[in-house]
Design a protein around this nucleic acid. Structure first.
Lengths: 215, 215
DNA sequence: TGATGGGTATGAGAAATCTCATATATCATG
DNA sequence: CATGATATATGAGATTTCTCATACCCATCA
C-alpha cells in the first residue's frame, strides 16, 4: 500500500513532506477536541469523520459527516475562525497533520493549494446542499436506515439517541419509535453494547425506499 | 452613494477595475441563464439571488438563495464545473462582471482573492449547514412564512407553487393547504398577479414561531 | 377543432410525526 | 449512600404531512 507518490503532492505547489506527519485513528477516536485553539492544517486521506459542536445550552449537536479526501481545520488555518469543532473518526482514518508554525506563510501564498481548496469547498457546498435538499423529503425510516449504515461500518450502531434524533431533525420520541420498528422487523438486534445490524441488506433497501418493511 | 473606495478593492491583490463592469438587475431579472458556458466571474455587491437548476425530468429545482456580498460563477471560473446554474435576481442587485478572457490567469494566481474566496465559501458552507439543520425541524407553516418574506420583498408573492413546494421539501398538496390557511387568516390576499402580503408582521412572527394563527 | 400536458385547486382518508406524560437506568458528585 | 441531572424507554392522543383521486384553466400542437 505504500505508494511511491506522496499523497499530498497534488494539493500543494511545494514539498510539504518536511512539515507533515501521518496520524492514524481508529473508529471512535477523537481527532480534534472541541474548543481547542488549533494552528495546524489537517488533510484526511482515508476514512470518514463526524463533526460536532456543543451548543450554549450544553447539548451536543452533530454538524456533518465528511469523507476523504478533504481538508480539516482549514477555516482556522486561514484565520477565519478561532476555535475548532469537535472531530471524531467514524471509519479508520489516515490523516496528515501539517504544522502551521513552520510553513503557514508559505501555504497561505501557495496558489496550487488555495485553488484546490476553493474547488473542494465549492463542491462540498453544492453536494451538501443537494443531498440535504433531497433527503428531507424521505420519511425518517429511510433517513435512519442510511444514517445507521453510515455510522456503523463495523456492524454495531452506537450513536447516542438524543444526538442522532437531533441530527436527523425529528423528535426523540419518534426516532425511538422507528428504531424499535427496526428491531421488531429483525433488521437490528439490541445488545448490551449497541444495536447489532442483522440485515444490512434490508437497511440498504430501506435507505433507497424500494422495499417496505411493514410491521 | 458613489463611494470613494472601489468595492472590489478588498477582494483582489491587484486592480481589477479595468476588467470590471457594473451591471444592475431588477427583481425578477435573469442574471445567468442555465446551461450557458460562462467564462466570467461575478461579484454580487448588493442584493439577493436565487439559484435554480433544471433536472433531467424537466422539473425546475430551486437550489439556494445567496445574499450579497458573494461571488457567483466561481466554480466555473476555477474550471471545476462546465455549465452554470440559472441565477435570478430576487432583490434589486448590483453585480460586478469580471471578464475572464483578459485577466483569468492573474486572478487564478492572486492569493488575496483565493484566500478571500476560501473563507467566504467555508463560511457559506457552515452557515448553510446550520441553517438547513435547524430549519428542518420547523413545521411548514413557519418555513413557508419565512420563504414568502424572503422571496417577496415588494409585498407580492409570485413563486411558482410547484417549485416552491419542492424547495420547501413538502408535497404540493400540503403546500397549497398551508397557503390557503394564510389567505383564510388574512395574512395573504390572492390577486390576479400573485399573493399580496397583508400582514407581514404576522408572517414574521410565524416564521419565528412565537404566535400561532389558529384557523 | 380536438387532443395533450402542465400548473392550479380541492376533498378525504391514511401515514408520519409531534406533544405531553410517565418510568427506569445510569452516572457523577457531595 | 442520597441526590440530581441526563439518557433511555414506552403510551396515548393531537397535529402535520402524504397519497390518491378528481377537476379546471390555459397553453401548445396536430
Amino acid at each position: 500500500m505504500a505508494d511511491a507518490r506522496f499523497p499530498l503532492e497534488d494539493y500543494f505547489g511545494f514539498d510539504v513532506r518536511p512539515y507533515s506527519a501521518l496520524v492514524r485513528f481508529e473508529a471512535g477516536d477523537i481527532i480534534l477536541s472541541e474548543g481547542e485553539a488549533n494552528d495546524a492544517l489537517f488533510f484526511l486521506e482515508q476514512g470518514r469523520v463526524k463533526v460536532s459542536v456543543t451548543q450554549p445550552n450544553g447539548k451536543v449537536l452533530i454538524v456533518s459527516f465528511i469523507d476523504a479526501p478533504a481538508f480539516l481545520g482549514e477555516l482556522e488555518f486561514l484565520g477565519a475562525r478561532e476555535l475548532t469543532n469537535g472531530v471524531t473518526a467514524v471509519l479508520p482514518c489516515a490523516c496528515w497533520r501539517i504544522a502551521g508554525t513552520r510553513c503557514r506563510e508559505r501555504i497561505l501564498n501557495d496558489t496550487t493549494f488555495l485553488r484546490k481548496l476553493c474547488v473542494m469547498q465549492g463542491k462540498r457546498f453544492v453536494q451538501n446542499a443537494e443531498k440535504s435538499a433531497q433527503s428531507q423529503s424521505y420519511p425518517l425510516k429511510a433517513r435512519l436506515a442510511q444514517f445507521i449504515l453510515q455510522t456503523a461500518p463495523d456492524g454495531v450502531y452506537r450513536e447516542k439517541h438524543t444526538e442522532a434524533a437531533a441530527y436527523l431533525g425529528v423528535t426523540y420520541r419518534h426516532y425511538l419509535y422507528v428504531l424499535a420498528d427496526f428491531v421488531d422487523c429483525g433488521i437490528l438486534e439490541k445488545t448490551f453494547q449497541g444495536y447489532r445490524i442483522r440485515d444490512s441488506e434490508g437497511l440498504r433497501s430501506l435507505s433507497g425506499m424500494e422495499t417496505l418493511c411493514r410491521l
